[in-house]
Structure formats: C-alpha cells, structure tokens
Design a protein around this nucleic acid. Sequence first.
DNA 1: CCGAATCCAGATTGATACTG
DNA 2: CAGTATCAATCTGGATTCGG
Lengths: 140, 140
Amino acid sequence: MVGKRVEAGARQQLVTGLLERMLVKDVFDETCIVNQALVLLADKWALLVLIVLMQGTKRYSELQRQIRGVSPKMLTQTLRSLEQNELVTRQIFPEVPPRVEYTLTDFGKSLSHPLAALCDWAFEQEPRLRTVYRKAHPEP
Amino acid sequence: MVGKRVEAGARQQLVTGLLERMLVKDVFDETCIVNQALVLLADKWALLVLIVLMQGTKRYSELQRQIRGVSPKMLTQTLRSLEQNELVTRQIFPEVPPRVEYTLTDFGKSLSHPLAALCDWAFEQEPRLRTVYRKAHPEP
DNA sequence: CCGAATCCAGATTGATACTG
DNA sequence: CAGTATCAATCTGGATTCGG
C-alpha cells in the first residue's frame, strides 16, 4: 500500500517534469535531444534486444532464440547499430565453435528505467493491448 | 532531496518488477505482450506524435509545425495508425477552412509514464547522446 | 556448427506537387 | 487547412553462401 503510493508520487513527478521541459522547447526538430534519442531507439528490434540484454550478457544465438521472428541479418544489423551507438559491447572469443557475447554498456544500462516503464505499461494494459493488436493484425 | 530518494526507490522497484516478470517468460515471440506493445510503439514518428499530444489536443498543422521534418504523408499515416490503435482520437469540424483535432485517448494517456521516462532519460544523457548521434550522423 | 556477409524481390519512406 | 497522388530512393526480410 505504502509502496504503491510512493510509486504513484514519483510517476506524477516525472510527468510534471516532462511537461515543464516541454514548455521550454516545443519544436521537435533534428536538434531536439528527444528526437535524437528516438532516432537511436525507435526501432522494434533494437528495443527488444535492449530489453533482453537487461537480463545480462547474451550470445548471438541466445538472442536469436529469445527474440523469435528476427532474421539473422536484422539481428546482426541491429547489434552493430547498438554497438555503434555505444549501448552494447561485442566480445569475440577465438574458439571453435565461435562465440560472440553482447553486453549492455553503462550507457545502455541507463535505459533500464525507461525500458522497465514500457514493459510495465505493456503488462498493465495487456487486455486492451491484445484487443487492439488482434484488430490491427487479422490473421486467416 | 527527499524527492530524489523517493524517485530512486520507485525506479528500483520498477526494474525489479520487470526482471521478475522476465523470468516467467523469456521468449519474445509474436504472442508476447511486450512484443505486441512494441509493434505499436517502435516507430519514430508515432512516439514523437504521442509525446507532443501529451501537451494536449492539437490540430494537424500544429503537429506538422512542432514535429519538424515529418512529411504530410507520414504524419497522416502515423495519425491513422495511432487512431486505429485507439491511442488517439480524430475529430473533424465541418468548417471553412477545415479543422481536424487530435487528442490522446485514455489508453494513449496511460503511456505518459513510459514516455516521460524516455524523455527524462534523453535529458539526463544529453551530452553522451549528442556525441553518439553526431558520430552516427556525419554531415558535410 | 556458429556468426555473419551477399544478393535480390518486395515493402516502406520521403520529397514534392496537387486538390476539396 | 488538411490532407492525397505520384514517383524515386531507401529499407527489409528470406535464402543462400561463406569463413573459422
């Protein structure tokens, strides 16, 4: 009970903080920091990879298994992009069979709060989300 | 000071909650609710539109002005998609000149916490974010 | 065998011009 | 004002192939 109230308080604080900053600059051009952040993050595979890597270091094949539906090409491409954006590090082990491990950097780990908020939202809104999703993705 | 501690507490709580749920189901296939959420949200324009609409109801032209760089086609497409996903409502006024207003639904408003967390992250990490962005988007 | 590069058809996006 | 139409360019995904 107390925990819930504390969380709700922090939430309100965050929203207010956002709106305050919105007033400072209300045009989202390419110099806006929020816009630049979204260029790195607004990507389905990138977000999924980051969420999975929050569990800890993973091998390429583990990522491919956990993220069902990603092609090897897109997984590689996504990982390279995340690496270039310093959110993930890539470590190659010169073994047979080869092993490559991916780990979040500190910068990547700093995304834990936003990503957790997103996942929490998905769980909270699960019924409505599933209804909407089914309507938008009608399968035979 | 107290405010900061409370916020940090809530943050830790959120991250822990996420990780707990991760253990329940660690495969992100198309039935995973997080995956379905990302299908709706992992889109640069959609996220920007939602963030701007958190400021309140907006006309089409206001959105186009605030979201610098979006083409009319993509803005329309994004708004139609958000409308179909029940995150936004579209209201047409039979006037001359025509007026169309877009407003977040309650479902859309429920995204305020995750979106605020994302914006807060962008502001917190601004220096590093700008460095990374500049490296990835070298202009002549 | 694992991780990744290549090639190619099809989908998505963006810039611009145009209309009710 | 609030969008459509059109066309070029880019991006995506799947199959295949390759190197250690």
